[in-house]
């Protein structure tokens, strides 16, 4: 080509994804704290059999409702079970459900939302009405209704919470998809002969991923909270399996004798929820091409 000289030395070098992540995180000490806290909880949940001092299910009638001591750091419950061990094992339930329920909800909700937003028309109308119907119930109420119908148990809680979260993901995914669908580069892809499935996978999904991932971390916090609430109401994790929610419920029976189970489990829930919220904010900023440096 003649006489075409582009000055490309003016271009800034592309910072790697990793460098951006590092920069954003280093600029926010709170994120580091949040990540550390989440990692600690994950480590505890993973290594529960190794670090739990007692069997969380082992009952002992001679140790009922004890206050914290060197033997039982958080005391024991009304069945004489070690509360610390139950909390350590309970973190497994809380974290797995906390991650799994939003993940399942994100996959189903995003699929529905993208299909509705991308294809529009009658498909959109049907999905949107369905989502509107579900979203008009508060999550907890919806979860209680479904849980009451299905009963408790690990998988049922995942299904219950996922079902309660789906409309939120579907709504965000639909709105984002419609916005991205109107972008000139999507029209450019259509004009280039790209198939619809490929446009969804390559152009729509990557561009709506950021809000979905943020939503996931935020709903992780909610899932942990709701699992605790359901367990507290007796609709979640079923006794004798431990979870933070039913530790609080059991602890309330002896709140004035020993408040430590309630305080311990409450603190665990609060800190994990807070950590996931902080992480969510940071992830949003990292994933947004406009705000990343």
């Amino acid at each position: 080509m003649s006489a075409v000289t582009e000055r490309l030395d003016l271009l800034a070098p592309e910072p790697s994804r990793l460098a951006i992540v590092r920069m954003v995180i280093l600029n926010r000490p709170s994120t580091i704290a949040a990540v550390c806290l989440i990692l600690v909880f994950v480590a505890i949940a993973t290594a529960a059999p190794l670090i739990a001092p007692y069997d969380p299910l082992a009952q002992s009638y001679i140790k009922i409702n004890q206050s914290p001591s060197w033997e039982h750091w958080l005391g024991t419950d009304q069945f004489g079970r070690d509360v610390l061990s139950r909390m350590i094992y309970g973190s497994r339930n809380s974290l797995i459900i906390g991650v799994l329920a939003p993940l399942v909800a994100a996959i189903i909700g995003t699929t529905l939302g993208v299909v509705a937003g991308f294809f529009g028309g009658i498909i959109d109308r049907v999905i949107s009405r369905l989502v509107d119907l579900l979203i008009s119930f508060p999550e907890l109420l919806l979860a209680i209704i479904i849980a009451a119908a299905l009963g408790g148990g690990f998988w049922n809680i995942v299904i219950v919470l996922a079902a309660a979260f789906v409309p939120n993901f579907a709504r965000v995914a639909r709105a984002q998809t419609m916005a991205v669908r109107a972008e000139p580069y999507v029209e450019a892809a259509v004009a280039s002969g790209v198939t619809q499935l490929r446009i969804i996978m390559r152009h729509i999904i990557p561009n709506i991923a950021a809000p979905i991932v943020v939503l996931m971390t935020l709903w992780t916090a909610s899932a942990i909270r709701l699992e605790a609430s359901l367990s507290f109401l007796g609709l979640g994790t079923q006794a004798p399996q431990p979870s933070w929610g039913n530790i609080i419920r059991d602890g309330l029976n002896n709140l004035f004798g020993s408040p430590w189970p309630v305080i311990g489990a409450g603190l665990a829930i609060t800190s994990v929820v807070l950590a996931f919220n902080l992480l969510g904010d940071t992830i949003r900023d990292v994933l947004d091409p406009e705000t990343s440096p």
């Binding site: 000139p184 580069y185 029209e187 450019a188 152009h203 561009n207 091409p289």
Partner: peptide, 9 residues
């Protein structure tokens, strides 16, 4: 639109 017609990602 030279900005909008290329996917930023």
């Amino acid at each position: 639109d030279p900005f909008g017609s290329l996917s930023p990602r």
